[in-house]
Design a protein around this nucleic acid. Structure first.
Length: 460
DNA sequence: AAGGTCCGCAACCGCTTTTCT
DNA sequence: CAGAAAAGCGGTTGCGGACCT
């Protein structure tokens, strides 16, 4: 049976409470009666219109069903969703009711596309939390986790299709941190050595580094959904570390590198991986350090490690940038736009950029990683920061270091070297971190040295 | 104009976590 | 304290419409 089409779904979405669709009951009582009758797959869910013999309807909700549910909530309040069926005769399972209410029927829901501010916040939150849609939704009043998830996945898909990284390639440039740069004559920068990383890994009980510079593990996995990746490099950029949620999968070599900010997702136009592998790459947001490091809702030390690694990379990048001469500022801005704006306007330019990303790892990283953002003490990002502080239990003083890139016009860029941790310091800090991973981070640990997002022109 | 592809969205599934008994 | 139930969460799928070729 044909399921309710998108048009009807849209009508349902927009007129759910009106009950205007032809043939639909206009009263709750009628709706109840009809709703019961719908039970036998009348509406035809997209997956066969009901599974099993429970007689529960699946598929799109009708206005009548919405009315029933709304009435039930009005009378009994939210919760106890399984009782909806008993009380109202609605042939929907509790889960479905809860979802419908949460995503469509509850009051104060914001409809329509995300505002630029919301988009920015989503990016930011995703960097902090990973794919923790519900928690992100908690920071976006009127928005649902489903909405945010859809938005993100769509955006992700678009960018992948365009061959763009969600985050600047420089963020993944750290992939070369461990090994590559030793072979690059241009890169004569003192950075955290592989030995250091290995030592760190050895000190982390469950952290088992894959063969370093494993080309496969390193590969950008182009065209693959990289749900776990964003929060890492970007989170380190934000200085907020990993999402605090526990992992549900053991770390894989690739994910491990991603978590370490060593993943390289867009640089070398890697050969496409098999779909199967691609699927496996689509891992939960946080997969690393799940067992040994209990971070609960605290900023994890893993993020600190990332931040340190990123800092190290920044030093590298900046020095190389000096060698190669920085790009014009407007050129940088263009790259930002190309990389971060909606690929909807990608066109040919994007492909160009995509290739540019490859080369950018050597010549253009300055516009992101190498361009260290001036430390700011923004005053109007307090809300999100406070929320985040609450969310992650991060000292406000630490959060105050977060640049207000939401409001940045992209001009507040200085080389910010003063904030960049030196490589030697990193080497020391890593050891310190390794020995104190389970301890809450200090403000020093959360030192934010670079904020490429400060240079973000805005989300298109 | 027709066919193909992309996009946005709603809703389901399976798993995990929390609450209740 | 253990088991069951409920709730929550993230991933995935499938649909219609919009857009592109």
């Amino acid at each position: 049976m044909e399921s309710f089409g998108g048009a009807q779904r849209k009508a349902s979405k927009e007129e759910a409470m009106k009950g205007e669709e032809g043939g639909e009951p206009s009263t709750v009582e009628q709706a109840v009666a009809k709703g019961s009758a719908v039970g036998e797959g009348g509406g035809g869910g997209k997956k066969g219109g009901g599974r099993g013999g429970e007689g529960l309807k699946k598929g799109p909700w009708t206005p009548a069903e919405d009315a029933i549910l709304v009435e039930h909530v009005r009378r009994h309040g939210e919760g106890n969703w399984n009782a909806v069926q008993r009380h109202s005769g609605l042939a929907r399972c509790g889960k479905s009711c809860r979802l419908r209410w949460a995503n469509h029927l509850r009051p104060n829901l914001k409809k329509g596309s995300f505002s630029p501010e919301e988009e920015l916040l989503i990016l930011r939150l995703h960097a902090q939390l990973g794919n923790k849609w519900a928690r992100m939704a908690a920071q976006l009043p009127g928005r649902t986790d489903n909405e945010i998830k859809n938005y993100w996945n769509t955006r992700l898909k678009r960018r992948q299709r365009a061959g763009l990284p969600i985050y600047p390639p420089e963020m993944h440039d750290a992939a070369r941190l461990d090994g590559h740069h030793h072979h690059d004559p241009q890169r004569q920068v003192n950075t955290t050595s592989p030995v250091t990383l290995r030592q760190l890994a050895a000190e982390l009980p469950s952290l088992q580094l894959p063969p370093l510079v494993d080309p496969i593990a390193f590969r950008p996995l182009s065209g693959i959904t990289l749900s776990p990746f964003p929060q890492n490099p970007f989170a380190s950029q934000l200085g907020l570390g990993f999402p605090p949620s526990p992992a549900s999968h053991p770390p894989t070599p690739t994910s491990l590198f991603q978590q370490l900010g060593l993943g390289n997702y867009a640089m070398n136009q890697p050969p496409p991986l098999s779909p199967a592998f691609a699927v496996k790459m689509e891992l939960p947001s946080c997969q690393l350090f799940a067992e040994p490091v209990s971070y609960s809702d605290e900023p994890s030390s893993c993020g600190l490690l990332e931040a340190l690694l990123q800092d190290t990379q920044t030093i590298e990048d900046m020095k190389i940038a000096e060698l190669l001469e920085l790009q014009e500022a407007n050129e940088e801005g263009t790259r930002w736009e190309q990389l971060f704006c909606d690929p909807g306007n990608d066109g040919e330019g994007i492909k160009e950029t995509s290739q540019g990303c490859s080369s950018a790892k050597f010549e253009g990283f300055d516009w992101c990683m190498g361009t260290t953002i001036k430390s700011e003490q923004p005053g109007d990002a307090s809300l999100a920061k406070d929320d985040t502080a609450t969310l992650l239990d991060i000292p406000t003083s630490t959060l105050s270091m977060i640049p207000d890139w939401c409001n940045s016009d992209g001009r507040d860029i200085s080389n910010g070297q003063s904030l960049v941790t030196t490589s030697d310091e990193i080497g020391l800090d890593i050891h310190q971190l390794a020995s104190s991973l389970s301890v809450g981070s200090t403000e020093q640990d959360w030192n934010i040295s670079l904020w490429p997002w400060n240079n973000m022109p805005g989300i298109c």
